[in-house]
């Protein structure tokens, strides 16, 4: 086997230059998706009619379909949706008017919202009802109860699942090459096809993902411990 170290060294800088894109694709969706997911979760907990059913279908759809198919659906569906809504169904906007990076981020936000909504819902409903009653007895309003009593406790429950999702999404973003977004994987793939050195490129990019995974999981573990300490929990 002729493993070319020269090619690996050359490819490192291409992959490294794509690190910011992978990070954007991971951290924008888990931040915006968390806010959206929170709204979805509260809607489902309050059992608001019609909306609750729509969210159930939405969650099931986004959680059941491979991410790569979701990318294609949004990529080709978004221009159609815009044309139907604003241009009377005439083909005014097409995929060449879209920014692929924006499409990827929008898709990932929608995807993250479905998963994070479920995580938030589980965490919010895990808080003991007695806590709510106690807060009401103390004369707190609904929002005060949420912000001061329920959310801080729910965060502790949600954190491990949330961080797991972040790590899963970090890996999940690696399929954006299918819609021509240049993240770490995509950069490696371009170099691999340019130099006909597939093994080197993919082993190298795999190494990048492993390092970031280990790094983030260490950081997340430290945050979880810290959060628990502040909540006065020892477990």
């Amino acid at each position: 086997m002729n493993f070319s170290w020269e090619f690996v060294l050359d490819t490192i800088k291409y992959v490294a230059m794509a690190i910011p894109m992978t990070m954007l694709l991971t951290f924008i969706p888990v931040t915006v998706g968390l806010m959206l997911g929170f709204l979805l979760a509260v809607t489902r907990i309050r059992k608001i009619p019609v909306l609750t059913q729509i969210i159930t279908v939405y969650n099931s759809f986004f959680r059941s379909i491979p991410l790569v198919v979701l990318f294609f659906l949004v990529y080709y569906g978004l221009p159609k949706a815009i044309n139907y809504m604003f241009h009377d169904g005439m083909r005014v906007v097409s995929i060449k008017h879209l920014n692929n990076n924006a499409v990827a981020i929008v898709t990932l936000i929608l995807y993250a919202a479905a998963f994070l909504g479920e995580i938030v819902r589980g965490a919010l409903s895990s808080v003991d009802m007695k806590q709510k009653e106690a807060a009401t007895a103390l004369g707190m309003t609904g929002w005060q109860t949420y912000i001061r009593i329920i959310i801080p406790q729910a965060i502790i429950v949600a954190l491990p699942n949330y961080f797991n999702f972040v790590l899963a999404l970090l890996k999940g973003t690696s399929v954006v090459f299918t819609i021509s977004v240049v993240d770490m994987m995509s950069a490696a793939k371009l170099r691999a096809e340019y130099g006909y050195r597939y093994v080197e490129a993919y082993v190298l990019v795999g190494f990048f993902y492993i390092v970031f995974s280990i790094l983030f999981s260490r950081i997340f573990l430290a945050i979880e411990r810290n959060a628990k300490r502040h909540m006065g929990q020892t477990i």
């Binding site: 086997m1 890996k171 399929v175 994987m185 093994v199 993919y202 990019v205 492993i210 995974s213 280990i214």
Partner: peptide, 26 residues
């Protein structure tokens, strides 16, 4: 476990697809 947990499925797929024949071959 650390390696396989951190590597995206598509990367692992390509490493196996392109790499295994080379490793076995050599």
């Amino acid at each position: 476990t650390d390696i396989l947990r951190g590597i995206p499925t598509v990367v692992l797929l390509y490493v196996v697809y392109f790499g295994l024949p080379q490793i076995v071959g050599s």
